[in-house]
Structures are given as structure tokens and as C-alpha cells.
Amino acid sequence: KLLSSIEQACDICRLKKLKCSKEKPKCAKCLKNNWECRYSPKTKRSPLTRAHLTEVESRLERLE
């Protein structure tokens, strides 16, 4: 599967780190437990900047 097509777990399953069936409108866990089942939009991760990478590398060197 391509990364862009990976389905996201519902908010509660993601928060509780449960295996989500990803069914809509309610996944199996939410249906069974009568929880409100919501699927928040995916958040875009910002790409690493060179400055951040350099900072992490220098912190790693100090720890070694």
C-alpha cells in the first residue's frame, strides 16, 4: 500500500492505542462500548529543516 492511502484509526482508538477496525460511521470498538466515534483530519507533519537536523546532530555528539 502507498503511504498516502493508509487509513487512520478513529480518535479514541488512537488515543487509547487500540486496534481500530476503521469502519465508518462507527468502528467496532466504539460501537461495542457506545463511545462517540470521530475521525479527525490527518495532520500534516512539517518537513525537517536543516537547522533542526544540525541541532539534533550536535546534541547527539555531546551525549556520545
Rank of each mutant, 00 (worst) to 15 (best):
27 C>L: 02
25 P>I: 04
17 K>Q: 07
54 T>N: 09
31 L>V: 12
43 T>C: 12
49 T>L: 05
21 S>F: 02
17 K>W: 06
15 L>A: 12
64 E>P: 08
32 K>C: 07
11 D>G: 03
33 N>S: 14
8 Q>D: 05
41 P>W: 06
27 C>F: 07
36 E>M: 10
8 Q>M: 09
17 K>C: 07
37 C>L: 02
40 S>Q: 09
7 E>R: 07
28 A>K: 14
33 N>V: 04
56 V>A: 00
63 L>V: 02
10 C>H: 00
20 C>S: 05
23 E>C: 12
40 S>E: 03
43 T>W: 02
30 C>S: 03
26 K>W: 12
9 A>S: 04
28 A>C: 10
26 K>G: 14
55 E>A: 14
20 C>F: 07
39 Y>C: 02
32 K>L: 07
34 N>Q: 15
48 L>I: 08
26 K>F: 15
54 T>E: 09
33 N>G: 12
26 K>I: 15
13 C>E: 06
37 C>N: 03
47 P>Y: 06
40 S>F: 04
16 K>T: 00
5 S>P: 12
8 Q>L: 11
13 C>D: 01
2 L>W: 13
18 L>T: 09
52 H>E: 08
57 E>T: 03
29 K>D: 07
10 C>M: 08
44 K>H: 08
14 R>Q: 03
42 K>R: 14
56 V>L: 10
39 Y>I: 03
53 L>W: 07
45 R>D: 00
26 K>N: 15
59 R>V: 01
3 L>W: 11
11 D>W: 04
48 L>Q: 04
54 T>R: 03
19 K>L: 07
2 L>R: 12
48 L>R: 04
2 L>S: 14
64 E>I: 09
35 W>E: 08
3 L>T: 13
5 S>I: 11
22 K>I: 03
58 S>R: 11
37 C>V: 03
48 L>N: 02
45 R>H: 01
5 S>R: 11
24 K>I: 15
2 L>N: 13
35 W>Q: 14
12 I>E: 11
23 E>H: 13
27 C>P: 06
18 L>R: 03
50 R>A: 02
60 L>F: 06
12 I>A: 11
33 N>K: 10
2 L>F: 08
52 H>V: 01
53 L>M: 15
42 K>A: 11
25 P>A: 04
39 Y>W: 06
54 T>F: 05
60 L>R: 00
30 C>D: 01
47 P>L: 02
17 K>F: 02
59 R>L: 06
26 K>M: 13
8 Q>I: 08
12 I>S: 07
40 S>L: 04
6 I>G: 10
43 T>A: 13
63 L>S: 03
31 L>W: 14
15 L>Q: 11
13 C>V: 07
62 R>V: 13
1 K>D: 07
21 S>I: 03
51 A>L: 09
33 N>C: 11
51 A>W: 02
58 S>Q: 15
45 R>P: 02
33 N>Y: 10
16 K>Q: 00
24 K>E: 14
38 R>S: 13
20 C>W: 01
22 K>T: 02
16 K>V: 02
47 P>R: 08
4 S>T: 11
61 E>S: 12
12 I>W: 15
34 N>L: 11
21 S>W: 01
28 A>V: 14
45 R>S: 01
59 R>K: 11
37 C>G: 06
32 K>Q: 10
8 Q>G: 06
45 R>W: 02
30 C>V: 05
40 S>W: 06
61 E>H: 14
26 K>H: 14
58 S>W: 13
48 L>S: 04
41 P>H: 06
23 E>V: 11
64 E>G: 06
31 L>A: 15
12 I>T: 11
4 S>W: 09
46 S>I: 03
30 C>N: 07
14 R>N: 00
47 P>V: 07
1 K>T: 15
28 A>T: 13
6 I>C: 13
29 K>T: 08
50 R>C: 02
23 E>T: 14
53 L>P: 07
11 D>I: 05
42 K>Q: 09
24 K>M: 15
35 W>T: 11
11 D>H: 06
46 S>T: 12
56 V>C: 13
12 I>H: 12
54 T>G: 09
16 K>S: 00
54 T>Y: 09
12 I>C: 12
53 L>S: 01
25 P>G: 11
40 S>I: 01
12 I>N: 09
9 A>E: 00
57 E>F: 06
32 K>A: 09
31 L>F: 15
27 C>G: 04
40 S>P: 01
9 A>K: 04
50 R>T: 05
55 E>K: 09
60 L>M: 12
13 C>K: 02
36 E>A: 12
38 R>V: 10
40 S>M: 03
35 W>Y: 14
18 L>I: 12
54 T>A: 06
18 L>Q: 09
16 K>F: 07
12 I>R: 12
41 P>K: 06
13 C>R: 05
56 V>D: 08
15 L>T: 11
10 C>R: 09
11 D>C: 04
17 K>T: 02
45 R>Q: 09
23 E>P: 07
22 K>H: 09
43 T>D: 08
51 A>Y: 07
22 K>E: 05
56 V>N: 00
55 E>Y: 14
33 N>R: 12
30 C>T: 07
41 P>L: 03
35 W>H: 13
10 C>L: 01
15 L>I: 11
44 K>P: 15
8 Q>R: 06
34 N>A: 12
55 E>H: 10
58 S>L: 13
26 K>E: 10
55 E>V: 09
30 C>R: 03
12 I>K: 10
14 R>T: 07
